[in-house]
Write a protein that binds this DNA or RNA. Structure first.
Lengths: 237, 237
DNA sequence: GGCAAGCTGACAGCCGGCTGAACGAGGCTG
DNA sequence: CAGCCTCGTTCAGCCGGCTGTCAGCTTGCC
């Protein structure tokens, strides 16, 4: 739950090529934390701001790949920021997060240059999917297709091929694999993988991660994931 | 539309050939209702406005795929709106609906950038045909025929072939399929499919999407649609 | 050998998705 | 007009796969 620290840390530059740099502007503490952890869990670097003002500052300072923008903020309307950004020529993709009853805002948002919107309460999985969709739209087809051993991992399409044959993965299985694939050469600790699995707070006290690694190995082959005893896991090669 | 360059880039293609997003501007209650129901029945999402002003607002707010525009409205001439739209660079196809004695308007309309016109009272079937023609013209040659598994999906013609044999789909069935076929590799959430099915605001709280997926599978084969638990659907392959 | 860390098969509960059935609206036919 | 059909929508019950947990096993390290 210290994710905010972590987020800032690798926003810097080092991991730029892998995960996206995401700015989350959302005042609701619970939702904000959930989204931050979930998105961080996907391997992206998240900065979470709770006010329009902080959001504006951040958006000006850093060249984000994606902005998640709540429309109703304590110190103003999210749309204001969006319009400002667009007026200054920023093309950063923006996904709007909006309450269920704000249809007009939604329309206005799209009209002001937002790229997509999600209605609260939303499914985190759907958030992930839309983020990918938006990112892909921008990156063209350049989103990573990763070759690892006899695996082809298509992050953007949520697909894995084993020696060319598609393999079905469940949600959690994919989450684990994607977490590893997001930073192919990095060692990822169990704790970090857990964060990717359980977005918010849920204290899981068992060997879930091990179980999913095991399931992945069964489906994808022994070597798809490498174990580093006492440290974590890494994508096989 | 107003969503400016970037918006067009994806909005245009996003909903293109599926259930189209149609804006109907028509003050006559009887005709308006008839057209709305007919067009909705084809599987498109229709917003119906009865005044020029509302129409203008809607057209600015939402990136429609097609506008059906009555020329004689209580609060002004439809042509005004058309010219405005074209002046701001909107390329949304517009079909003009006009009474038979307004020949000059018709000509002026075509000159102002309308794509086609229909003379009242018109045959609804003809309206359907012209809509298809216009939409096809816009889709260009870029996405006519899609091969997916043993299916051939002819988006522009609103036809599906299963192993070469044409299959009859109802309006909604087609809308769902087309929404998926529109972005063949993308994962489409239930929410997004619903959006393609219903106009803004109609809150549908049931498993409609599941039902239509089920019916599609019955007609087109188990694998025509892939389920991604908790995330959405994707066209089979 | 002994200990810690990691692996994996089994299992029960659950949730999401699937689907048959029913109903009303509307259109068409005779 | 009655009868028939199709389509859209809703609902309830079913089903299967996903998931978390645990126990017993293997592996690696000292």
């Amino acid at each position: 739950m210290l994710a905010s620290g972590r987020g800032d840390a690798y926003c810097g530059s080092r991991y730029r090529e892998c995960g996206l740099r995401v700015l989350l502007i959302e005042d609701d503490a619970v939702l904000g934390e959930a989204v931050r952890d979930f998105v961080a869990g996907l391997g992206h670097a998240v900065d979470w701001m709770q006010t329009l003002d902080d959001g504006r500052t951040a958006a000006r300072a850093v060249d984000y790949d994606l902005i998640l923008l709540d429309l109703r903020l304590p110190d103003g309307r999210g749309l204001t920021l969006l319009t400002e950004l667009r007026r200054t020529g920023a093309v950063t993709p923006v996904i709007i997060l909006t309450a269920h009853d704000q249809i007009s805002d939604r329309i206005e948002g799209l009209n002001s240059g937002a790229d997509d919107y999600l209605v609260k309460p939303f499914n985190l999985g759907e958030l992930g999917a839309r983020m990918l969709a938006v990112a892909r739209r921008y990156a063209g087809s350049s989103l990573p297709v990763l070759e690892a051993g006899n695996l082809t991992i298509q992050l953007a399409d949520r697909r894995v091929l084993r020696e060319g044959d598609p393999v079905d993965l469940s949600g959690r299985e994919w989450a684990v694999l994607a977490r590893l694939a997001n930073r192919p050469d990095a060692i990822v600790s169990k704790g970090e993988i857990e964060e990717a699995l359980y977005a918010f707070g849920s204290e899981i006290e068992s060997n879930t991660v091990e179980v999913y690694v095991s399931r992945l190995r069964k489906k994808l082959g022994k070597d798809c994931v490498e174990t580093l005893r006492g440290i974590g896991y890494r994508l096989g090669r």
